[in-house]
Amino acid sequence: MIADVLAEATDRMAKAVEVAKDDFNTVRTGRANPALFQRILVDYYGSPTPLGQLASLQAPEARMLVVTPYDKSALKEIEKAIATAPNLGATPTNDGQIIRVVMPELTQDRRKEFVKIVRGKAEDAKVAVRNIRRRAKDDLDALKGEVGDDDVSRGEKELDGLTKRHIDLIDDALKRKEAELLEV
Protein backbone atom coordinates (compact mmCIF):
# COMPACT_ATOMS: atom_id res chain seq x y z
CA MET A 1 0.00 0.00 0.00
CA ILE A 2 2.74 2.44 0.94
CA ALA A 3 4.76 1.35 -2.10
CA ASP A 4 1.73 2.08 -4.32
CA VAL A 5 1.38 5.62 -2.91
CA LEU A 6 5.11 6.25 -3.40
CA ALA A 7 5.11 4.81 -6.93
CA GLU A 8 2.19 7.02 -7.95
CA ALA A 9 3.86 10.08 -6.41
CA THR A 10 7.11 9.27 -8.24
CA ASP A 11 5.30 9.00 -11.59
CA ARG A 12 3.43 12.24 -11.08
CA MET A 13 6.56 14.11 -9.94
CA ALA A 14 8.48 12.83 -12.97
CA LYS A 15 5.69 14.10 -15.22
CA ALA A 16 5.83 17.50 -13.49
CA VAL A 17 9.58 17.68 -14.18
CA GLU A 18 8.99 16.79 -17.87
CA VAL A 19 6.30 19.48 -18.16
CA ALA A 20 8.74 21.99 -16.66
CA LYS A 21 11.42 21.04 -19.19
CA ASP A 22 8.89 21.37 -22.03
CA ASP A 23 7.88 24.78 -20.71
CA PHE A 24 11.52 25.85 -20.62
CA ASN A 25 11.83 24.91 -24.30
CA THR A 26 9.05 27.35 -25.19
CA VAL A 27 11.15 30.29 -23.99
CA ARG A 28 13.37 31.44 -26.80
CA THR A 29 17.09 31.81 -26.61
CA GLY A 30 19.38 33.32 -29.23
CA ARG A 31 18.90 30.23 -31.40
CA ALA A 32 15.93 29.15 -33.48
CA ASN A 33 14.44 26.11 -31.75
CA PRO A 34 11.52 24.20 -33.32
CA ALA A 35 10.09 23.63 -29.81
CA LEU A 36 9.36 27.38 -29.63
CA PHE A 37 6.89 27.03 -32.48
CA GLN A 38 5.20 23.75 -31.49
CA ARG A 39 2.57 25.48 -29.32
CA ILE A 40 1.71 28.32 -31.71
CA LEU A 41 -1.96 27.94 -32.58
CA VAL A 42 -2.97 28.44 -36.21
CA ASP A 43 -6.57 29.10 -37.25
CA TYR A 44 -6.90 26.12 -39.59
CA TYR A 45 -10.37 25.87 -41.14
CA GLY A 46 -11.92 27.58 -38.13
CA SER A 47 -10.27 25.57 -35.37
CA PRO A 48 -7.07 26.44 -33.48
CA THR A 49 -4.48 23.81 -34.41
CA PRO A 50 -0.89 23.56 -33.09
CA LEU A 51 1.67 24.51 -35.73
CA GLY A 52 3.54 21.23 -35.18
CA GLN A 53 0.53 19.38 -36.64
CA LEU A 54 0.34 21.55 -39.74
CA ALA A 55 3.96 21.82 -40.81
CA SER A 56 7.45 20.44 -40.42
CA LEU A 57 9.86 22.68 -38.55
CA GLN A 58 13.60 22.68 -39.26
CA ALA A 59 16.46 24.86 -38.07
CA PRO A 60 19.06 24.93 -40.91
CA GLU A 61 20.98 27.78 -39.25
CA ALA A 62 21.38 28.98 -35.67
CA ARG A 63 18.95 31.87 -36.00
CA MET A 64 16.70 30.66 -38.85
CA LEU A 65 13.76 28.30 -38.81
CA VAL A 66 12.12 26.88 -41.94
CA VAL A 67 8.43 26.02 -41.73
CA THR A 68 7.19 23.68 -44.48
CA PRO A 69 3.39 23.32 -44.37
CA TYR A 70 1.84 19.98 -45.24
CA ASP A 71 -1.12 21.85 -46.77
CA LYS A 72 0.04 24.79 -48.90
CA SER A 73 -3.38 26.46 -48.56
CA ALA A 74 -2.62 27.07 -44.87
CA LEU A 75 0.52 29.08 -45.67
CA LYS A 76 -1.04 32.52 -45.06
CA GLU A 77 -2.66 31.45 -41.77
CA ILE A 78 0.61 29.93 -40.51
CA GLU A 79 2.50 33.10 -41.44
CA LYS A 80 -0.07 35.24 -39.62
CA ALA A 81 0.07 33.05 -36.48
CA ILE A 82 3.87 33.23 -36.35
CA ALA A 83 3.87 37.00 -36.85
CA THR A 84 1.41 37.54 -33.99
CA ALA A 85 2.94 35.00 -31.58
CA PRO A 86 3.95 36.59 -28.28
CA ASN A 87 7.57 36.58 -27.05
CA LEU A 88 9.05 35.70 -30.46
CA GLY A 89 9.63 39.05 -32.10
CA ALA A 90 10.30 37.24 -35.37
CA THR A 91 9.16 38.30 -38.81
CA PRO A 92 8.24 35.43 -41.11
CA THR A 93 8.87 35.63 -44.86
CA ASN A 94 6.75 33.56 -47.23
CA ASP A 95 8.00 32.47 -50.65
CA GLY A 96 4.85 30.57 -51.65
CA GLN A 97 6.23 27.16 -50.66
CA ILE A 98 7.86 27.59 -47.25
CA ILE A 99 8.10 30.19 -44.51
CA ARG A 100 11.49 31.36 -43.30
CA VAL A 101 11.64 32.83 -39.82
CA VAL A 102 14.81 34.69 -38.83
CA MET A 103 15.11 35.17 -35.09
CA PRO A 104 16.40 38.63 -34.11
CA GLU A 105 19.32 38.96 -31.70
CA LEU A 106 18.29 39.22 -28.07
CA THR A 107 19.22 42.31 -26.11
CA GLN A 108 20.64 41.90 -22.60
CA ASP A 109 17.43 43.31 -21.07
CA ARG A 110 15.31 40.87 -23.06
CA ARG A 111 17.53 37.98 -21.93
CA LYS A 112 17.06 39.00 -18.28
CA GLU A 113 13.32 39.21 -18.83
CA PHE A 114 13.31 35.67 -20.25
CA VAL A 115 15.33 34.47 -17.24
CA LYS A 116 12.58 35.84 -14.97
CA ILE A 117 9.95 34.02 -17.04
CA VAL A 118 11.90 30.75 -16.80
CA ARG A 119 12.33 31.17 -13.03
CA GLY A 120 8.57 31.65 -12.71
CA LYS A 121 7.95 28.47 -14.69
CA ALA A 122 10.44 26.61 -12.46
CA GLU A 123 8.68 27.84 -9.33
CA ASP A 124 5.33 26.69 -10.74
CA ALA A 125 6.82 23.24 -11.36
CA LYS A 126 8.21 23.11 -7.81
CA VAL A 127 4.78 24.01 -6.44
CA ALA A 128 3.28 21.19 -8.50
CA VAL A 129 5.83 18.72 -7.05
CA ARG A 130 5.10 19.94 -3.52
CA ASN A 131 1.35 19.56 -4.11
CA ILE A 132 1.93 15.97 -5.24
CA ARG A 133 3.96 15.41 -2.07
CA ARG A 134 1.17 16.86 0.07
CA ARG A 135 -1.46 14.59 -1.54
CA ALA A 136 0.79 11.55 -1.14
CA LYS A 137 1.42 12.44 2.52
CA ASP A 138 -2.32 12.68 3.09
CA ASP A 139 -2.70 9.24 1.51
CA LEU A 140 0.04 7.88 3.79
CA ASP A 141 -1.64 9.43 6.85
CA ALA A 142 -4.89 7.74 5.86
CA LEU A 143 -3.08 4.37 5.99
CA LYS A 144 -2.02 4.79 9.64
CA GLY A 145 -4.78 2.53 10.94
CA GLU A 146 -4.06 -0.23 8.43
CA VAL A 147 -0.25 -0.34 8.66
CA GLY A 148 2.19 0.46 11.45
CA ASP A 149 3.22 3.99 12.33
CA ASP A 150 6.87 3.09 11.71
CA ASP A 151 6.08 2.01 8.15
CA VAL A 152 4.18 5.25 7.54
CA SER A 153 7.03 7.40 8.89
CA ARG A 154 9.54 5.46 6.74
CA GLY A 155 7.27 6.09 3.75
CA GLU A 156 7.13 9.80 4.58
CA LYS A 157 10.94 9.99 4.75
CA GLU A 158 11.15 8.26 1.38
CA LEU A 159 8.54 10.69 0.02
CA ASP A 160 10.62 13.64 1.24
CA GLY A 161 13.66 12.18 -0.55
CA LEU A 162 11.64 11.81 -3.76
CA THR A 163 10.44 15.38 -3.48
CA LYS A 164 13.97 16.69 -2.98
CA ARG A 165 15.31 14.70 -5.96
CA HIS A 166 12.60 16.00 -8.29
CA ILE A 167 13.00 19.60 -7.13
CA ASP A 168 16.76 19.24 -7.70
CA LEU A 169 16.03 18.02 -11.26
CA ILE A 170 13.93 21.15 -11.85
CA ASP A 171 16.73 23.35 -10.42
CA ASP A 172 19.29 21.66 -12.70
CA ALA A 173 17.12 22.22 -15.77
CA LEU A 174 16.62 25.84 -14.67
CA LYS A 175 20.39 26.40 -14.36
CA ARG A 176 20.96 24.97 -17.84
CA LYS A 177 18.24 27.14 -19.35
CA GLU A 178 19.50 30.28 -17.58
CA ALA A 179 23.03 29.62 -18.88
CA GLU A 180 21.61 29.11 -22.37
CA LEU A 181 19.63 32.35 -22.15
CA LEU A 182 22.52 34.45 -20.86
CA GLU A 183 25.00 33.01 -23.38
CA VAL A 184 25.84 35.67 -25.95
Rank of each mutant, 00 (worst) to 15 (best):
A20P: 00
S153F: 13
L65N: 07
V67Y: 15
T163M: 07
D168W: 14
T29N: 10
L57A: 04
A35F: 09
F37T: 05
N131S: 13
L169K: 14
L106G: 03
E178D: 10
V67G: 10
A14F: 04
G148A: 12
R111K: 00
Q58I: 04
K121H: 11
G46R: 10
T84D: 15
P34H: 08
I99Q: 04
P86G: 09
L75A: 08
R165E: 10
V127G: 11
Y70K: 05
L143V: 14
I2W: 05
Q108P: 02
A35H: 11
V152I: 12
A142Y: 06
D71A: 09
M103R: 03
V42R: 06
S153P: 00
K157G: 04
Q58R: 11
V101H: 05
P50M: 14
R135C: 09
A55I: 02
V184S: 01
G89V: 01
R31G: 06
R63H: 12
D160C: 04
R63N: 12
G120Q: 13
I117E: 01
K121L: 15
E146M: 13
I99D: 03
G30H: 01
L36I: 06
K112T: 05
K137T: 08
R28T: 04
E158W: 07
K157M: 13
E178C: 12
A90I: 01
A125I: 02
A32R: 06
D71G: 13
P60A: 15
T26F: 00
E61S: 15
A20E: 10
A9Y: 12
Q97V: 03
T84N: 12
E113N: 05
V42L: 11
V5F: 08
L181W: 02
V42M: 12
R63E: 09
Y44M: 11
K144F: 08
R12L: 15
L41H: 14
A55K: 00
P86S: 13
T163Q: 12
Q38M: 15
L41D: 09
R135M: 13
A14Q: 14
D11E: 14
L36V: 02
R176P: 02
R134N: 14
V67K: 10
V118P: 05
Y45W: 09
Q97L: 05
T91Q: 14
F114K: 00
Y45F: 11
L57H: 12
V27A: 08
G96W: 03
L106K: 02
T29Y: 01
A85S: 10
Q108N: 08
R176C: 07
H166T: 02
A85W: 00
A125L: 11
E8H: 08
T163S: 13
E158T: 04
R154C: 11
L174S: 06
L140Y: 15
Y70Q: 00
A59E: 09
